[in-house]
Measured scan of single mutants.
Amino acid sequence: TTLHFDLDGKKLQYTGVSEEIARLVEELKRRGVDLKEIVRILEELLK
């Protein structure tokens, strides 16, 4: 799965993300978590 974000005018793309992580990101968005925080979490998970 590939995730795309537009953060402060920067286009971020994460490829090869598992379905689980993609679902987690969608859930965080639904809960109103700040996009910067979501990206920070995502980068930690993908290390």
Score class of each variant (00 low, 15 high):
residue 47 K to G: 12
residue 25 V to C: 03
residue 22 A to Q: 10
residue 37 E to A: 08
residue 22 A to L: 09
residue 28 L to E: 05
residue 38 I to E: 00
residue 20 E to A: 12
residue 14 Y to K: 00
residue 45 L to Y: 10
residue 27 E to R: 07
residue 35 L to F: 06
residue 36 K to E: 11
residue 13 Q to M: 14
residue 22 A to T: 10
residue 31 R to P: 02
residue 37 E to H: 07
residue 40 R to T: 14
residue 18 S to N: 13
residue 6 D to C: 05
residue 32 G to Y: 05
residue 27 E to N: 09
residue 1 T to H: 15
residue 23 R to F: 13
residue 19 E to K: 11
residue 39 V to N: 02
residue 34 D to A: 12
residue 23 R to M: 13
residue 32 G to L: 08
residue 47 K to S: 11
residue 37 E to R: 06
residue 6 D to A: 02
residue 36 K to R: 14
residue 16 G to H: 14
residue 11 K to Q: 15
residue 3 L to A: 01
residue 7 L to R: 00
residue 5 F to D: 01
residue 29 K to T: 14
residue 14 Y to S: 00
residue 27 E to P: 00
residue 30 R to H: 13
residue 26 E to V: 08
residue 44 E to T: 09
residue 19 E to R: 08
residue 44 E to P: 03
residue 28 L to C: 02
residue 44 E to N: 10
residue 21 I to V: 15
residue 15 T to W: 07
residue 23 R to H: 13
residue 47 K to P: 09
residue 31 R to D: 15
residue 13 Q to H: 10
residue 14 Y to P: 00
residue 43 E to S: 06
residue 31 R to W: 07
residue 20 E to Y: 06
residue 43 E to I: 05
residue 8 D to A: 04
residue 27 E to L: 08
residue 10 K to G: 08
residue 9 G to R: 00
residue 20 E to W: 05
residue 5 F to V: 04
residue 43 E to V: 05
residue 40 R to M: 14
residue 18 S to M: 04
residue 9 G to N: 05
residue 16 G to D: 09
residue 14 Y to N: 00
residue 31 R to Y: 07
residue 41 I to G: 04
residue 8 D to G: 07
residue 21 I to F: 07
residue 29 K to L: 12
residue 42 L to F: 04
residue 29 K to R: 14
residue 27 E to K: 07
residue 14 Y to L: 03
residue 8 D to Q: 04
residue 26 E to L: 14
residue 23 R to N: 14
residue 10 K to L: 13
residue 33 V to P: 02
residue 5 F to R: 00
residue 6 D to E: 12
residue 32 G to I: 03
residue 41 I to R: 09
residue 23 R to E: 13
residue 3 L to R: 00
residue 29 K to E: 13
residue 26 E to I: 08
residue 40 R to Q: 13
residue 13 Q to Y: 10
residue 30 R to K: 13
residue 2 T to R: 02
residue 16 G to Y: 07
residue 40 R to N: 12
residue 45 L to K: 11
residue 3 L to M: 07
residue 28 L to F: 10
residue 39 V to K: 03
residue 35 L to E: 13
residue 9 G to P: 01
residue 41 I to E: 07
residue 27 E to I: 06
residue 22 A to D: 04
residue 24 L to Y: 14
residue 37 E to L: 07
residue 42 L to Y: 01
residue 32 G to W: 03
residue 7 L to Y: 09
residue 14 Y to C: 01
residue 26 E to N: 08
residue 16 G to F: 07
residue 9 G to E: 06
residue 10 K to F: 10
residue 23 R to T: 15
residue 7 L to G: 01
residue 36 K to Y: 09
residue 34 D to T: 09
residue 35 L to W: 03
residue 47 K to R: 11
residue 34 D to S: 11
residue 30 R to W: 13
residue 17 V to E: 01
residue 9 G to M: 02
residue 44 E to A: 10
residue 5 F to W: 02
residue 34 D to G: 08
residue 25 V to Q: 01
residue 10 K to N: 11
residue 36 K to G: 11
residue 39 V to E: 01
residue 27 E to H: 07
residue 43 E to T: 06
residue 40 R to L: 08
residue 34 D to F: 06
residue 38 I to W: 00
residue 36 K to W: 10
residue 41 I to N: 07
residue 26 E to A: 14
residue 35 L to Q: 10
residue 9 G to C: 02
residue 35 L to S: 10
residue 33 V to I: 14
